[in-house]
Computed example of a mutant assay.
Amino acid sequence: MFFLYKKKYHLDKHGIVTKKSNSNIALIKYWGKHSDKIQIPLNSSISYSLDKVYTVTKLIYNIKEKCDKNISSIKVFVSGKKNYFFLQKVSEFFHRISFYCSYLRNYDFIIETYNTFPHSSGIASSASSMSALALCIMEIEKRFFTYFLKEAFLRKKASFLARLGSGSACRSIYPGLVVWGFHKSIKGSNDLYAIPYPYKIHSIFTNLMNTILVIDETPKKISSSEGHKLMNNHPYAKERFKCANRNMDSLISILKIGDIQEFGKLIEYEALSLHAMIMTSNPYFLWMKPNTLNVIHTVWEFRMQSKKNIYFTLDAGANIHLLYPIQEKNYILQWIYSDLIDYCKKVIESFCC
């Protein structure tokens, strides 16, 4: 394995690392993973990172008095409060990555983390939190090893590690458009870590606004992890994976020529396809709220009347991302605050970075 190596390293007695990582919003959705492998997707995905939607994580490490094969103590604080749910996820994450980062077994850890947005509500908080933690760990590795580790390697391994905590977290390691999962048309794409999108992107797609309408701030009753498992026996799963890969081929062409209308149609279709799979799982469930549908219908009506290039997408939750060119920002933001504000708890103005 590329990330396993036997070279000398030294251990600090204690230290502190702080890293920030952005959330991301998928355009082509990853939904469903191999049941017999750890965090391997059943279709490729592509996402934008978001500039004002992020997690900041501080990792404090102290060497254990007596070293053993186990990571003996991890304490997790989310926004200043102990969080036992996240502690379980982090403990499992550390167990998975200790094979690739054996030095972690020598330490006890305290993790202090906070988001700039509601967690567990469908705005990819697990992506930003796990990627921030993976970046912290790679900063520790950089300090420990007596030889120089290149930035490209640090990013690649951080993406590999982040994937073992949350699949979509591997995409949050990089800015811009990021691909995860093997796709025959994308050079360098693979299932183990994400890569920056390697092909030409029209300028209109390098200046996209992403305004998030927070319709429901409460944690989801059904987690994304539980939802992924329901794809294993889903009657429409195989066709969905084929469709997602066909849509990726379409998106490659769209990104090159700058067709914003076709881009919008595709991302809306992908969002609704994801939720169609959720609603037809067994057991079935529904993340959309009444105001999610109200916003969708209002966006469609506004776009038809105004001819503005505004399109929506959703992640695994009720909240809506509105994507539109920066050139149309002032007009569209004014409309959002006049016509959509009553449907949501808050508005987060972000940029696809």
Results as ranks from 00 to 15, higher is better:
Ile201Trp: 03
Asp108Ile: 10
Leu230Met: 11
Leu272Arg: 10
Phe144Ser: 01
Asn43Cys: 09
Asn247Gly: 09
Gln327Ser: 15
Gly167Glu: 05
Cys353Glu: 09
Leu4Phe: 04
Leu50Phe: 06
Thr55Ala: 13
Pro118Phe: 09
Lys307Gly: 06
Val53Pro: 01
Leu133Glu: 14
Tyr100Thr: 13
Glu349Tyr: 05
Gly317Thr: 08
Ile38Phe: 13
Lys52Phe: 12
Ala158Lys: 00
Glu301Gly: 01
Ser79Glu: 12
Leu340Cys: 11
Tyr30Asp: 02
Leu11Glu: 11
Asn330Gly: 03
Phe182Asp: 03
Pro219Trp: 13
Leu164Lys: 07
Pro235Val: 04
Gly165Ile: 04
Lys329Glu: 11
Phe145Ala: 05
Ile320Leu: 15
Met248Asp: 00
Val179Ser: 01
Trp287Ile: 10
Cys67Asn: 06
Phe94Gln: 05
Asn62Ile: 06
Tyr174Gly: 00
Ile278Thr: 12
Cys352Pro: 09
Phe312Tyr: 09
Ile63Asn: 00
Lys69Asp: 12
Gln39Cys: 10
Leu149Ser: 03
Thr280Trp: 02
Met277Ala: 08
Ala162Lys: 06
Tyr147Met: 05
Tyr9Leu: 09
Leu323Phe: 07
Trp287Met: 12
Phe2Asp: 15
Ser168Trp: 10
Ala271Phe: 08
Gln305Met: 14
Ile137Leu: 09
Ile16Leu: 11
Glu270Thr: 02
Thr292Asn: 15
Asn115Ala: 13
Ala318Ser: 14
Ala162Glu: 03
Ser350Leu: 05
Val179Gly: 01
Phe144Ile: 04
Asp249Pro: 13
Leu104Ser: 09
Trp287Asp: 01
Asn207Arg: 15
Thr292Ser: 15
Glu151Asn: 14
Phe263His: 02
Phe312His: 14
Ile123Asp: 03
Leu161Lys: 06
Tyr114Met: 07
Tyr337Arg: 11
Ser72Pro: 08
Tyr9Val: 12
Ile332Trp: 05
Thr292His: 02
His183Val: 08
Asn319Gln: 03
Ile123His: 07
Trp31Thr: 06
Ser23Thr: 02
Ser45His: 07
Tyr5Leu: 10
Gly32Ile: 12
Lys142Cys: 04
Thr57Asn: 06
Ser203Leu: 14
Asn210Lys: 05
Ile111Asp: 00
Tyr236Gly: 10
Ser121Ala: 15
Leu135Trp: 04
Ala124Met: 01
Ile60Cys: 01
Arg163Glu: 00
Gly165Asn: 04
Tyr337Met: 06
Pro235Phe: 07
Val347Leu: 05
Ala162Val: 03
Gly176Phe: 00
Asp339Gln: 12
Lys66Thr: 12
Ser73Leu: 11
Glu268Gly: 12
Ser91Ile: 10
Ile341Leu: 15
Ile260Ala: 05
Leu59Lys: 07
Lys64Asn: 13
Trp335Leu: 08
Phe3Met: 09
Asn330Asp: 15
His321Ser: 07
Asp342Glu: 11
Ala237Thr: 00
Ser49Lys: 04
Lys184His: 09
Lys187Gly: 02
Ser49Phe: 01
Ser72Asp: 14
His95Met: 11
Lys37Ile: 03
Ala132Leu: 01
Met209Ile: 15
Phe3Trp: 12
Ser45Thr: 15
Lys33Ile: 08
Tyr343Ala: 08
Phe94Cys: 01
Lys66Arg: 07
Asp51Ala: 08
Lys75Val: 13
Val299Asp: 00
Gln39Tyr: 03
Phe312Gln: 07
Phe351Met: 10
Trp31Phe: 09
